[in-house]
Design a binder for these strands. Structure first.
Length: 800
RNA sequence: GGGCGGAUGGCGGAAUGGCAGACGCGCAAGGCUUAGGACCUUGUGGGGCAACCCGUGGAGGUUCAAAUCCUCUUCCGCCCACCA
């Protein structure tokens, strides 16, 4: 009655493993397909997000395998990171012990889902056999000047006692623990990803199979903007104050300039002025505030007049120099020209402080120039230049170019491009990460660990108390070393790498996970890479993907790979929701995959999660839906009880239609409609019966989705070899040919009747039959048809 | 403020510009059964006895024909954001 999913699933999981069905080797004679899903952090338990991600991947992998591809489908663990340290403190254990235990649990859970991984390629980033190559890569970057150290004001999470990259600050809080982030000055290691900004931006164009919005997010993050650096001059000593603008067309409307509080020039300008103390206090306040509080939109812009003046180079007008917190030190030159009439931020600020305004662009609709007093907001749209000397009358788009060129020619400015992308801060004051392979020697300075001394391993017995920063610094044997250069006493770097480093190249490691000469074997990577299909969550749309692209380009420069992009196709799967909300512990709405597997089996879970929604959209978990999936499998199971000697032509026709549809849908990752058509085939079989051949083909079509279930039925049907060793099906057109077709008759675009006609009917004959149709004639009455629109085999529209 | 998506029955969702609502859930009726929350069959957008009419967030438009294309608009989601 109900198929024995538990026994069946265990049986086949063992069998696949024993027969090494999914273990692969590069075979240059065959076409390869590298299917990769983003590897998980080993929390110990898989959640529905994992189930969805990996099920989508597994179906694609098995489908491609049956289509004859040599398929690489690996899995591993992104195993470094803070949670292991927290767990170690909480459970009085060590991060490594904790992590490896979690990996064991997690691997077991993944195995229970029946995923077709080549487990012999498993990697964990916390193995020294893996992270030694992080260190190797870091040293190569250091050699090339791509890894460097600098003191800077960084985001600091007081709770985690670590620095955070800007990307890791979410809504003013730490991305992990949400504690309010502070600013702190520290010496930190950076990677010069900005050296790759042009390539990272340009090469997005070759990624036609990536989702549009991911490409947009990446481009946005890199943030190229073209404009002009304009040289204002100090009134007192004629020194240059450069400002950056993308709106050179508004330069004649610049009525003051504003400096970022951190700009050193500010202190110079206010020296000895009455407002010196007030502004110093302001600078002090701003620099202590985290960036997030400062940029909160509801906070009022604060600013002060420095008492100094600058000269606008286009008209020699004297303009006051202000300092305000809405100008950012990190972008452009840290100074802006303010055009209140054509920039809303400047407009608000000017209004507040009574600063002058001048209109320089008139909107096309207005014949008369409105005076600034009448403005209720800045006009940021297109228009005609006014009050702009020789540029009056031009439209502002043209003027923007002309003014920029003029400034460059007269040396009062320079055409420049600015980028949003910053170098990547990778230092973390944590224990559970890759030690940065650097040594500090009093005599020699910063000395890289020689390649031969790698890996720099994490000490096994660091004290975990939870108090005061990284335990690494407290392990004498780790910290105290001899300088590799001069042999005198030296000190090891105790910072570790951000875990995004680990995941920026793991897809290459999977090609040759045991390689001990290099991070990966060139030839193996040459065969398998790039990844043909990458699948993962949209939350990695920016950072992980950008860093992976950066690393790939770096390897390209080292001559280790011959391609420039790591991931050919990208699919970002939607989240799994319960009652319209993301599943989370705090909401208490988690559905544990394990409990579903126990109740219905992995195949049912896989089927449901694919059927409930297309992969990219959000998926609403539905307990009744899973029952439906289970019901369907049982319905298929029972077909074997009533096999007939021969199937009806109708069932054969539906079968071939289904082969066509499922094949196309699998190719496009449209699993929900593929399953719908498998259900239709099943319904047709229940209507008019199936023979063994039709049933076997249904099983093949279903097998990537419900692998254990289909493997068992395949064996019951008398097959000795695994169903995944059989070739995928191809439909035969001859079975799809229908003798008659139903043609819809419309009158003036409205459906009025329907007739059954021979499929190969001529247009004239069809018209004749249509006009002979009773219902149609009633609608036509006396009005003669003006024209016929005929869509062959589908529709006739009569216009009267 | 910028960017990218969405909006279709009671619900999840289908529809190369060509029969809106495939498939599933739910619901209803019937069958089978000692019983069933199992299984099988049938029905199921709304209104109407019916003929028919109305229906894809809203308003226009293009077209013989629009969920689909265009313009405007409302609401929702995600990402980025004092980036000059």
């Amino acid at each position: 009655m109900i198929y024995a999913f538990k026994e069946i699933e265990e049986k086949w999981q063992k069998s696949w493993q024993a027969s090494r069905l999914f273990n692969v080797k590069a075979d240059p004679k065959r076409k390869k397909y590298y299917l990769l899903e983003m590897f998980p952090y080993p929390s110990g338990k898989i959640h529905m997000g994992h189930v969805r991600n990996y099920t989508i991947g597994d179906v694609a992998a098995r489908f491609k395998m049956m289509q004859g591809f040599e398929i690489l489908h690996p899995m591993g663990f992104d195993a470094f990171g803070q949670p292991a340290e927290n767990a170690a403190i909480k459970n009085k254990t060590k991060p490594d012990i904790w992590t490896y235990k979690c990996i064991d649990w997690m691997r077991e859970e993944l195995r229970k889902m029946g995923f077709s991984y080549d487990w012999e390629r498993e990697v964990s980033t916390c193995d020294s056999s893996y992270y030694r190559w992080n260190q190797w890569i870091f040293l190569k970057m250091f050699e090339r000047g791509l890894a460097y150290k600098k003191e800077s004001s960084v985001n600091w999470c007081p709770s985690c006692e670590t620095t955070l990259a800007n990307e890791e600050v979410v809504d003013g809080g730490c991305w992990r623990c949400s504690t309010k982030v502070k600013l702190r000055d520290l010496e930190q290691w950076y990677l010069k990803i900005t050296d790759y900004k042009e390539r990272l931006l340009e090469d997005l164009e070759g990624l036609g199979h990536w989702p549009e919005r991911v490409l947009a997010m990446q481009a946005n993050w890199i943030g190229k903007s073209s404009g002009v650096e304009i040289y204002f001059r100090r009134k007192d000593n004629n020194a240059i104050i450069p400002v950056f603008t993308t709106r050179a067309d508004t330069i004649f409307g610049a009525t003051y300039i504003v400096l970022a509080p951190e700009l050193p020039l500010v202190k110079e300008l206010i020296k000895g002025k009455p407002q010196e103390k007030q502004i110093l206090d302001f600078i002090d306040k701003v620099t202590k505030e985290s960036k997030v509080i400062r940029t909160a939109s509801d906070v009022k812009k604060e600013g002060y007049f420095t008492g100094a003046y600058a000269v606008n180079p286009v008209n020699n007008e004297e303009v006051p120099i202000w300092v305000a917190d809405y100008v950012l030190m990190e972008y452009g030159t840290g100074a802006i020209m303010a055009v209140p009439t054509h920039d809303q931020r400047d407009f608000l600020f000017a209004g507040e402080h009574g600063l002058p305004m001048r209109i320089v662009i008139r909107s096309p609709g207005h014949q008369v120039t409105t005076s600034p007093e009448n403005l209720s907001e800045a006009y940021e749209g297109p228009g005609i230049q006014v009050n702009s000397a020789q540029f009056d009358g031009l439209n502002n788009q043209e003027a923007k170019v002309k003014i920029a060129e003029w400034m460059e020619a007269t040396k009062i400015g320079k055409i420049k491009t600015h980028w949003r992308l910053r170098d990547w801060l990778i230092s973390r004051q944590r224990f559970w990460g890759t030690p940065i392979p650097m040594i500090y020697c009093k005599a020699c300075g910063v000395v890289p660990v020689p390649e031969a001394d790698l890996p720099v391993e994490l000490p096994k017995d660091a004290p975990f108390t939870g108090a005061g920063g990284s335990p690494l610094g407290k392990v004498k044997e780790f910290v105290e070393v001899k300088c590799p250069r001069c042999g005198s006493r030296a000190r090891r770097e105790t910072d570790t790498m951000a875990t995004f480093f680990d995941s920026s190249w793991y897809f290459l490691r999977f090609c040759s996970p045991k390689s001990d000469k290099l991070p990966f074997d060139k030839e193996e990577a040459g065969y398998w890479m790039p990844v043909d299909q990458y699948i993962g969550g949209i939350e990695h749309a920016i950072l992980h993907l950008l860093y992976s692209r950066f690393f790939t380009k770096f390897f390209q420069d080292l001559g280790m790979v011959a391609f420039k992009e790591p991931f050919k196709r990208l699919l970002t799967q939607g989240m799994v929701l319960k009652d319209g909300e993301v599943m989370s512990k705090s909401r208490g709405n988690i559905v544990d995959p394990d409990s579903i597997i126990k109740k219905y089996g992995a195949d049912t879970l896989r089927l449901f999660i694919l059927f409930a929604a297309p992969p990219e959209t959000e998926l609403e978990w539905d307990d009744r839906g899973i029952e439906g999936a289970f019901k369907f499998l049982n319905r298929v199971w029972r077909i074997q009880e009533n096999l007939m000697p021969a199937a009806s032509p109708e069932v054969v026709r539906v079968l071939h239609k289904t082969i066509k549809k499922v094949t196309e849908d699998f190719q496009d990752f449209k699993f929900n409609t593929a399953i719908a058509s498998l259900m239709e085939l099943t319904n047709a079989i229940y209507q008019s019966g199936a023979d063994k051949e039709v049933f076997a083909k249904l099983i093949i079509l279903l097998s990537p989705i419900a692998p254990h279930f289909c493997e068992e039925l395949w064996q019951i049907l008398g097959n000795k070899e695994s169903i995944f060793m059989t070739r995928w099906l191809e439909h035969e057109e001859r079975f799809l040919i229908e003798e008659t077709v139903a043609v819809v008759i419309q009158v003036n675009g409205k459906v009025r009747s329907k007739i059954e006609v021979p499929a190969d009917i001529s247009e004239d004959k069809l018209k004749e039959l249509v006009l002979a149709d009773e219902k149609t004639r009633a609608w036509l009455k006396d009005s003669p048809p003006k024209s016929f629109i005929i869509v062959p085999k589908k529709l006739v529209n009569i216009v009267i």
